[in-house]
Design a protein around this nucleic acid. Structure first.
Lengths: 176, 176
DNA sequence: GATCTAAGTCAACAAGTGTTGACCTTCACA
DNA sequence: TGTGAAGGTCAACACTTGTTGACTTAGATC
């Protein structure tokens, strides 16, 4: 039973992998369907449209959880942990990559930017009341995450390294 | 005379404006030609192909000039100056925006990433010998520039403000 | 003025796009 | 066994894409 839910989930997973790495308009729906082992028409059936499928992938991204955090120091620790604990080569690519790949897209760019502010910047502002500082801080974080997980720039060490952690912590502390 | 050069320049300018904000594959060549007030076929004639035109826009970006810089302090000052002196609403969008909009593109992504390392990260490494630190530093810069010039995120003050400059300087200093 | 070349125009092409509607299959339930 | 719906398949649609080749125009050179 509930076979439909399985194909829905398969489509969603493949859509994340493709949309978030290559960008919304660079991925034909036929390719998503093929990767999911499913017919194209089912995308329209289950998600209404290609855009509907994309929206579903973004809706699936959890917001930064700051409920247990009090000070800026807590925030930095949490973020360094987050960066070093994230599954490095899992099947689901980083949502940060989604920003890089889609923020410029005329069709879904606005949606992506909205999700970024809602789920990342706004929570940070809860801990860092200075709006300008919080914006700068989260922007720097975005850059680092993007460079590491989407750009694959040379020179960025694995985030598990202690030396890297220390450098990251130092950079973040300087921003607050 | 040299009317051909004029249309070439017009095409290049419009291509920058469109490619760098919306991304390579989101911009049809017909739209570029229309914006330049020129026939589509001239893109193929003068630049060989759509991709050739894109490459021309990237080749036009100057590298970060670090010849007169010695210390990390010099570098920070130069960058803060660069950020606050850049024409904010000029016709040419920031090359940083080009990275955001195109780094994920399967067709031109590699080219864009190459330009980023060549023209931005490598010069920074000349001043900041620690490769890992330099990478983190330039990644943070990328994020800030992207957030300001391409994402238009809320909360990022105009870079001309003295308070913003001070915050930026502090963040950068923390990274080095 | 004739001639040659650079510059520009136009229509068409082949390929790929998202979406739809008609059809088939499977299976629980009466 | 018959019926209904849910899940899935297939071919076709209207549209947009980058590129090309044949054609026309403008300007300099002799």
């Amino acid at each position: 039973m509930a076979k439909g839910e399985d194909t829905k989930a398969a489509l969603l997973l493949r859509a994340k992998q493709l949309f978030w790495t290559r960008g919304y308009s660079n991925v034909p729906v036929r390719e998503i369907a093929k990767a999911a082992g499913v017919d194209v028409a089912l995308i329209s059936r289950y998600f209404g449209s290609k855009r509907g499928l994309f929206e579903a992938t973004m809706a699936d991204v959890p917001a930064l959880d700051v409920r247990d955090l009090e000070t800026s120091e807590d925030l930095i620790t949490a973020i360094v942990d987050l960066f070093s604990s994230a599954p490095r080569n899992g099947p689901e690519p980083s949502p940060t990559a989604a920003i890089l790949a889609n923020a410029g897209d005329p069709e879904v760019g606005e949606l992506v930017r909205l999700h970024y502010t809602r789920k990342w910047q706004t929570p940070i502002e809860k801990i860092v009341p200075d709006r300008s500082k919080a914006a700068l801080f989260s922007a720097a974080l975005l850059g680092i995450s993007v460079a590491e997980k989407a750009l694959h720039l040379p020179g960025i060490a694995p985030a598990t390294s202690d030396a890297y952690k220390a450098q990251l912590r130092q950079l973040l502390a300087g921003a607050l």
